[in-house]
Write a protein that binds this DNA or RNA. Structure first.
Lengths: 108, 108
DNA sequence: TCCGTAGTTCAAGACTTTCGAACTATTGAA
DNA sequence: TTCAATAGTTCGAAAGTCTTGAACTACGGA
């Protein structure tokens, strides 16, 4: 809990890492929840219920290191938010089209 | 070589599988090569040179099962082509924006 | 029929994912 | 200020995936 979070600069974000992070159904779900909420959200809120905390922690780490989210400590919790605007500048339309496409196929 | 190729119907293609397939640098490279060529291409042509054949075969299988490419046997070779139009109907803009974004970041 | 080319399959080692258990940091209450 | 609850991290083990060499199959041409 003392180790500070590391966020890559937007220009160091690799497209492959972004796709990799979003390729996992759990992580895509987390990103969708954050996108829908439109504001920062702690890990437990943004993650699907019943996801073990260690798994949750792992997924947030992947999302953070891929450059998709920004995490900040607020007391005992971690507030996560999407880096949408930054990413859209670097990879125009990519995140938006994926989020849009994922809405249509969410029920399965 | 006798086993026929299995291609998912476009409506059975999962967004996660597409993202997963494109998240690998080698596979993204293959897809970019196919997109640039604008026509069917055998495996050795489309894959980066010096990629071991077994690895190559594995990547084409992943791309095929993810619904990204269509493969057909032509004598001793396999002709692969992107399923762009179909996929764009199902996931509008996703493949196009990824291919576009990947052009800017290809040199690394 | 035999050879070369194109690709597949198999197996093994390396790497990743998931999740329980143990841990740490912060907050709020006694 | 001490204690417990909350929120998340770290570690380790089991299960799964990736990469690649070696052996294989299939087609086409000489």
């Amino acid at each position: 809990m003392q180790r500070p979070f590391v966020h890559p600069a937007v220009e160091d974000v690799a497209l492959e890492s972004v796709l990799y992070a979003l390729a996992d159904p759990t992580r895509l779900e987390i990103v969708k929840t954050l996108a829908a909420g439109n504001c920062g959200m702690n890990c437990s809120m943004a993650a699907p219920p019943d996801l073990p905390k260690s798994t949750q922690s792992h997924h947030f780490q992947v999302l953070r290191e891929a450059g998709l989210i920004r995490s900040e400590r607020r007391g005992t919790e971690v507030v996560n938010s999407l880096r949408c605007a930054e990413l859209d500048k670097r990879f125009p339309g990519v995140i938006a089209s994926i989020l849009k496409a994922s809405e249509k196929t969410k029920k399965r």
